[in-house]
Amino acid sequence: MTSWQKFFGLIVGAYFAINLLFALAYVAGGDGIENAEPGSFWDAFFFSVQTMATIGYGAMYPKTPYAHFLVTIEVLIGLLAVAMATSLMFARFSRPTARILFSQVAVICPYNGVPTLMFRAANQRSHKIVEAQIRVTLLRQEVTSEGHQMRRFYELSLARAYSPFFLLSWMVMHPIDPASPLHGETLTSLIDRDAQIVVMLTGLDEAGSQTVHASYLYAPEDILWNHRFVDVLTPCPSGARYIDYPRFHDTQPLSLENW
């Protein structure tokens, strides 16, 4: 999505470009603007500005059929341009932003005795995301029995893929059991097979009931084996909890006896 600076730059650039083109057209028509100096580009330019914005100061006005014809076209273009700019502006303001923070790394550590792939997400919005769902997909390069190389997609089952409302943080977990596509994989094998883990989160904005979505990509080098995430949920005296964002991506290694 285009940044606000680029968006306003495009609007301003289009505004000046249209007025410059019409100014040249007015100058090409000769002495067609009353009270304007004949052949003056700047008089024609400012007349174009007044015409497009329908300001109508009254000092300058068209006096030839050619000038009247240009004014008719410019007013129509001005109305359409204002309508389009207003629609684009409204769409940018009304479009909800996900503002989902994913941990920069994922970890593999035991959970209930089973090696588990984990990463976490945090909702940085001021209100909840309802009906939140997460899908995690493994992409890796494979060679068929005929020797053809192809990119395969594998859905990773999650301990919890749905949340009725997503308010603070979400620890996403995939048990690496014998049925898991990650079973038997190592860091070296994932790198050799050019593997990637794609995360997609969708939900509904609580305020506007509009769909929000966010995505993230983990490379094999982003997965820390035999690590766990540090706790970032801190209780307040009032009983509420908040997230310690400076430690959101932090992990700590586990001793071998934990495996």
Rank of each mutant, 00 (worst) to 15 (best):
H174A: 08
G203K: 09
D205W: 08
S189M: 13
M200Y: 10
S209L: 09
L204P: 00
M200W: 07
F153V: 05
S215L: 04
I191M: 13
R193I: 03
H227Y: 13
P175H: 07
L224Y: 10
D194L: 06
F166A: 01
P181V: 08
L204I: 08
S180C: 10
E221W: 00
M173Y: 01
F166G: 06
V212W: 10
Q210C: 08
S209N: 13
D192A: 15
E185W: 02
L187M: 03
V212I: 15
S189A: 14
L158F: 02
L158V: 01
N226H: 14
A159G: 12
V198P: 01
E155K: 12
D177N: 13
L158K: 03
W225Q: 04
L224H: 13
H213T: 11
R151W: 14
P175V: 02
A207T: 12
P181A: 08
H213P: 02
L156D: 04
S169R: 09
P175D: 08
R160F: 02
F153R: 15
M150T: 14
T186C: 08
E221H: 00
F166L: 01
V212S: 04
G208E: 11
F166H: 03
S163W: 14
P181R: 03
A214L: 11
Y218D: 08
A195M: 11
G203R: 07
A161W: 15
L156W: 04
V198L: 15
W225T: 03
V198M: 15
S215Y: 06
L187W: 00
D192T: 09
D192M: 09
Y216Q: 07
A195F: 04
T211H: 06
Y216T: 10
L167G: 00
G184N: 02
D205A: 09
I176C: 00
H213R: 13
P164F: 06
A159H: 04
F153M: 10
A207R: 15
V172Y: 02
T188R: 12
Y218M: 01
M173P: 04
T188Q: 15
L217S: 09
P175M: 07
T202V: 07
I197M: 01
Y154I: 01
M150N: 12
E221R: 08
W170F: 05
I197P: 00
L168G: 09
H183L: 03
A214P: 02
E155G: 06
Y154G: 01
H183V: 04
